[in-house]
Every structure is written in C-alpha cells, then in structure tokens.
Amino acid sequence: MITHPRTEELAESVRLWIDEIRPTLDPRNAFLARVAANAMATIAREITQGPAAEAAAIAGMAGVLGQEGTYAELNSALCARIRSGELTVETPGLLAALTTMARDQIAIDQPSYKPEGTVRSE
C-alpha cells in the first residue's frame, strides 16, 4: 500500500479534525462526535495492530484445535466445539488462547478499558 499518507494516518487526521470542531457542537452532536473520533482511532489501531493480533489468534486456535485453517474457519470450528461441550474451561490451552485473543482485541477496540482482575497501580 502507498505510504504518503498511510491509511492509519488518514484515519488519524480525521480524528484530530473531529476533536477540533467538537467544542462548537451542541451537546448531543458533541457526544456523537466523540464517538466518531473514537471510531477513527479504532480504525487506525486495527490497521496497525490487527494483522499481528489475527496471526496470534490463528496460531492459538490452531494449537487448541489441532488443525490448520483461516481465521474464519478456525473461529467457526472453535465455536462449534465449545458449543458441543467438547472443549471446556478444563481443556488445556483453551483459556490461555482465548485470553490472548481477548487482550489483543480490547487493545484495538478500547485500550483504556481495565478488565476484570486488573490490579490498580498507584
């Protein structure tokens, strides 16, 4: 892909502009503009962090399932085998793989979110 600008930079420029005009908006639109700015930031993070997260998810799921496949194939297979009761919280490696996937996804969607179990450092 071209690099001048990169896609994530386009998203970042839109986010900055939204933040700039936010103070001029009525409360409802100011709120929605903040949501829109957050959406642009998510897009930028997905572009930069998404490929590594997906590769890690594929490796993790393939390890648990003992099969190869695309992200979508492995994800479907994993869901089906959890639903059937074949894979449970006791299955070695399952929770570890799911934890990695969850952490990588929250880092894209909402990096400021502090999940259950986060110890406060102050």
Partner: peptide, 17 residues
C-alpha cells in the same frame, strides 16, 4: 461503536472463567 464493546465483556469473561 457499541458493537465494539463486546470485546470488553470478553476480556472480563475470560478472567471470570
């Protein structure tokens, strides 16, 4: 964007599980 909050519940659920 609320749809992207599913992952916050997943990040909590893996810890609770």
């Amino acid at each position: 964007m609320i749809g992207r909050r599913v992952s916050e519940t997943e990040a909590d659920l893996v810890v609770l599980l």
